[in-house]
């Protein structure tokens, strides 16, 4: 407790003209003052130097510019690092949402496909994020698998990134939208519950994607449509029932329910067709290039002969 008093006593005298004995402490004091003045002081001194030397305004400007830039970069960097550190330090905030037993996760995954009839009683929604995060990660792996197993020949770093982005953005974006609508339409549900509900709902997507990839019928999409209607429909129905049981207004809740159902079902269609059409188009492109294009018959014939000669 003894330390601060002399510091505070000396600081004002530094700025004033000063005539007391304390002035002798000044240089040490400024040095040990730490980071508070670090950012401001160099600027001031540089300014005065520039004026004294009478250097060209362009140089001065450039110098100041570069200084400002470094300062900004440094501050942005430290802020980012601090933020990351704080997030990592505050990991305990998220911990309650990951507090589950394996048995519960299994049960919730199963029940995400079994809709319950909405009654007057509110249906329970878990406030848990472990299951949803794992479902999203599984989905990313499945999308990667789908691309690879379809013999996907593209610079595929970007597609892999897009798979990651698609899954997480759908999860967070759809949850945000539904939350907004639910808030406007007075549905009694909080953000974490929506995240959990939609995340578990994506388990149905995973099943459909997996089966659609393993039992691969390239041109006939009937099998996929069946799965889409059955599994996707069940998981959608489950979520719609939850919203229905938790909403008070009769007409408003239809908006939320319709949005949720449309988002959920269309996303599954998108996932299937976006990647499959890419795959099909690409395979067509490759086929047409492997078998030479019918531009001129003679050229094609010569290429054919070459390729046949090269084969053995």
């Amino acid at each position: 407790m003894a330390d601060p008093s002399p510091w505070q006593a000396t600081r004002p005298t530094n700025q004033g003209s000063g005539g007391s004995a304390v002035l002798s402490m000044e240089p040490e004091d400024v040095d040990s003052d730490g980071g508070h003045h670090d950012y401001d002081d160099p600027d001031m001194s540089k300014d005065s130097q520039g004026r004294n030397e009478g250097s060209s305004p362009g140089d001065d400007f450039r110098q100041r510019m570069s200084q400002n830039m470094t300062q900004m970069m440094w501050q942005a960097g430290t802020q980012g690092a601090k933020k990351a550190w704080n997030v990592y330090g505050n990991i305990d905030i998220l911990r309650p949402y990951f507090n589950v037993e394996p048995r519960e996760v299994r049960r919730r995954l199963l029940y995400s496909l079994i809709p319950r009839k909405p009654t007057a009683q509110k249906q329970e929604v878990p406030r848990e994020l472990y299951g949803p995060v794992m479902v999203v990660l599984t989905m990313i792996a499945l999308l990667l698998y789908q691309m690879k197993s379809a013999d996907h020949k593209v610079a595929d770093g970007t597609l892999m990134g897009s798979a990651l982005g698609t899954c997480f953005m759908y999860w967070l974006g759809a949850s945000g939208l539904v939350w907004l609508l639910a808030y406007v339409c007075s549905v009694r549900i909080v953000m974490v519950q929506i995240l959990s509900m939609i995340g578990y709902g994506m388990f149905g997507h995973c099943i459909v994607l997996f089966l659609g990839t393993v039992i691969h019928t390239s041109h006939d999409h009937l099998f996929f449509y069946l799965l889409w209607a059955l599994v996707g429909g069940l998981s959608t129905l489950r979520m719609v029932c939850i919203i229905m049981s938790r909403a008070s207004g009769k007409t408003e809740r239809i908006v939320v329910m319709a949005t949720l159902a449309a988002l959920h079902l269309l996303f599954l269609l998108y996932l299937h067709f976006a990647y499959h059409t890419v795959v099909e188009e690409l395979s067509q492109v490759f086929d047409s290039q492997l078998v030479p294009e019918p531009q001129s018959a003679a050229a094609a014939d010569s290429v054919m002969e070459k390729s046949q000669a090269a084969v053995p």
Partner: peptide, 18 residues
């Protein structure tokens, strides 16, 4: 390997960064 649309060649293997 086979040529892709933009004339670049790439066998579809993952890139280093990936």
């Amino acid at each position: 390997d086979r040529k892709t649309n933009d004339g670049k060649t790439n066998d579809g293997g993952p890139q280093f960064a990936e």
